[in-house]
Amino acid sequence: MPRVLLVDDDVELLELLGEYLIQDGFSIERAYDGLTGAQAALSGQFDIAVIDVMMPQMNGIETLRKIRSLSHLPVILLTAMGDDADRIIGLELGADDYVPKPSSAREIAARIRAILRRSQGFAKDQLAAVTVGQLTLWPSERRASWAGQALELTSTEFSLLEVLAQFAGRPVSKEQLSQQGLGRPLAKFDRSIDVHLSSIRHKLGLLPDGRSCIQTVFRQGYQLIREQ
């Protein structure tokens, strides 16, 4: 039974969301402030955390920052509708996905399942290491290295990089990256893919000739360079 941590100061909302998730087959625990939520998230007892951005004292962004300093636990942020700034900051800090509020419990449950399916399920089908130039991925362990050095990737970053590696040398559309990497269709004006890939590029660094190994292909998407 997947273990989900819900963090929000809205008691009524958490009660309703928690009840839905329990009926949908999840084990849940609630935290009503960012500090308690961060401590719970770092306990190692959960598979994923859903955190609201708008909380007093320690908001969701600071809660995520604290979690990411010590853990790669998958995190979904609940953000205000149309608040692009919080979404981008959250993704840059390592959030795996976001859900705009108000949203249905069914939508949140679907996002949770998509992330857990990627991080726990897909890897079982791929045991062999995947190597493209200086990049090596171990899907069964959700582990990656660049030039022999371990890469610190979030679950979503690993999934996106894995998709690019599978199609190395060929462009991959943002729609395909969203479907296979995020587990959902690409939404209009959604910049999640761009922000995640910007973070991955930063972590990989540059090739000897100064280029990024992940190239933007005009009107086609992104491509992982095969020759590195």
Rank of each mutant, 00 (worst) to 15 (best):
G82R: 00
D96M: 08
Y98P: 04
D83A: 06
D96A: 14
A110K: 08
R117N: 04
R65D: 14
Q120C: 08
D52Y: 12
S71V: 00
M58W: 07
A105C: 12
D52G: 14
M54G: 09
Q45C: 08
D47K: 03
G90P: 01
L91V: 07
S69M: 09
D97R: 13
F122H: 11
P74Y: 07
R106G: 06
D86R: 04
G60M: 10
G90Q: 05
E107F: 02
M81L: 14
R68C: 02
D83V: 01
R111I: 01
L70R: 15
V53F: 12
L77W: 02
M58C: 12
L77P: 03
K101V: 02
S119N: 08
P56L: 04
I88P: 05
I51E: 11
G60T: 12
E107I: 13
I67D: 09
L78A: 02
A80P: 02
S71M: 00
S103P: 05
R117C: 01
L78C: 03
P74D: 11
A80Q: 12
I48L: 15
R68L: 06
M58R: 14
F122T: 06
P102S: 08
A114P: 01
G82I: 00
L93W: 03
S104A: 11
G82E: 06
E62M: 15
T79R: 04
I108E: 02
Q57A: 13
R87V: 14
S103I: 02
A80E: 12
L77V: 11
P74H: 07
L64E: 10
G60C: 13
D96H: 08
L70S: 15
V75M: 11
I51V: 15
